[in-house]
């Protein structure tokens, strides 16, 4: 009987028994990321274990390394909240002097990356360390109990952006760290999502294989912080892609003019010119994404806020060189 090859290695580096919440999308992201990394190292160096992880303080750190236990089957270090990129720089330099082949994977959440770790990230990218930085983006400080970060999307409820008489919830547009990373003209930058695991794995492998720094920003659902059903994590993440909320793109060497944009699916019509995506007509309204999450519940009484969100999404796509049309429900 023919046995079908599994789509990704069955080797596990992120062991079961970690203490993440049920339905945690970030745990899924780390599981896939380490598998992808291992495949890349095997293909590049013939050694699937040729990597180490430097991780920022955050959800995925506290759930994975509670003394005397560890979920990590790979050399792993945690130093503090804001310095995963700097610690990874040191590990990489040490490996270079030890003559060790392989690559360092730095991991941080959106708070540890977009906010407090921004400077260390910029330094690591600018110095061209052979490090992949993976930002798992669940769009708020979840470890401390759901406070807004600069990566929290417009309109979202968090404990520090509560909706009220004078507030619609978070009132600033989301900061896209991937674009800032790309401005460092590093070899490879991508956005990804657990809603499209094959695309994510492909990008992680690409990032792991390039010589020099790479940055991947992966969208991960957080049922606890998003107030969303545990079992719908992947579905919600996919809806973010299909409605235009979460763009999937790749930028090599900071070449914004040749940005690669992945088709979002969900019936969206993609218009290309010379191979380049120039326009996308989305078919699913963003409300389909928003309505599954308690963090956006209040917006349904404030339709003008959802319209404002649509405008911000269009503006974000404009930065990527893409004109988008976003339908309203029923259109």
């Amino acid at each position: 009987m023919a046995v079908r090859k599994p789509p990704i290695t069955t080797r596990e580096y992120w062991a079961p028994g970690h203490a993440a919440c049920a339905g945690c999308g970030c745990a899924t992201a780390l599981k896939l990321a380490t598998k992808a990394f291992s495949e890349a190292m095997e293909e590049k160096y013939g050694d699937p274990n040729a990597f180490a992880i430097a991780q920022a303080t955050g959800c995925m750190e506290v759930v994975s390394a509670v003394f005397p236990y560890t979920a990590w089957k790979v050399p792993w270090i945690h130093v503090a909240f804001e310095n995963a990129a700097a610690a990874a720089s040191g590990v990489e330099a040490a490996w270079k002097k030890l003559g060790r082949r392989g690559k360092i994977l730095a991991i941080g959440g959106d708070g540890g990356t977009a906010d407090i770790g921004m400077q260390a990230l910029s330094g690591m990218l600018e110095r061209r360390h052979n490090v992949v930085y993976l930002m798992y983006d669940n769009e708020a400080y979840m470890n401390t109990g759901i406070q807004r970060s600069s990566s929290t999307p417009y309109g979202a409820w968090t404990t520090t952006s509560p909706p009220g008489k004078y507030s619609i919830g978070e009132d600033k547009p989301k900061k896209w760290v991937a674009l800032i990373a790309a401005a460092h003209q590093v070899p490879y930058v991508a956005t990804a999502s657990i809603g499209n695991p094959f695309d994510f794995v492909r990008k992680m492998k690409r990032a792991a294989k390039v010589d020099g720094p790479a940055f991947v920003q992966v969208h991960c659902t957080c049922p606890t912080g998003w107030k969303s059903p545990l079992e719908k994590g992947v579905e919600i993440a996919r809806l973010a892609i299909e409605t235009g909320i979460w763009p999937l793109f790749e930028i090599e060497n900071g070449d914004f003019f040749n940005i690669k944009i992945q088709a979002p699916g969900g019936g969206a019509k993609v218009k290309r010119e010379g191979g380049r995506v120039v326009a996308i007509e989305f078919k699913k309204p963003i409300e389909e994404y928003l309505k599954l999450q308690g963090r956006f519940k209040h917006l349904f009484k404030r339709p003008e806020a959802i319209d404002e969100m649509r405008e911000q999404i269009k503006a974000m796509w404009k930065v990527l060189g893409v004109d988008v049309t976003l339908p309203k429900p029923g259109e």
């Binding site: 130093v79 804001e82 310095n83 700097a86 610690a87 720089s89 040191g90 590990v91 400077q119 260390a120």
Partner: peptide, 17 residues
């Protein structure tokens, strides 16, 4: 490095390696 915070953080990473 781009700061002393990163200097000592990189030293921690290297020493831990």
């Amino acid at each position: 490095v781009e700061s002393e915070h990163s200097a000592i953080s990189a030293c921690v990473g290297a020493s831990a390696a």
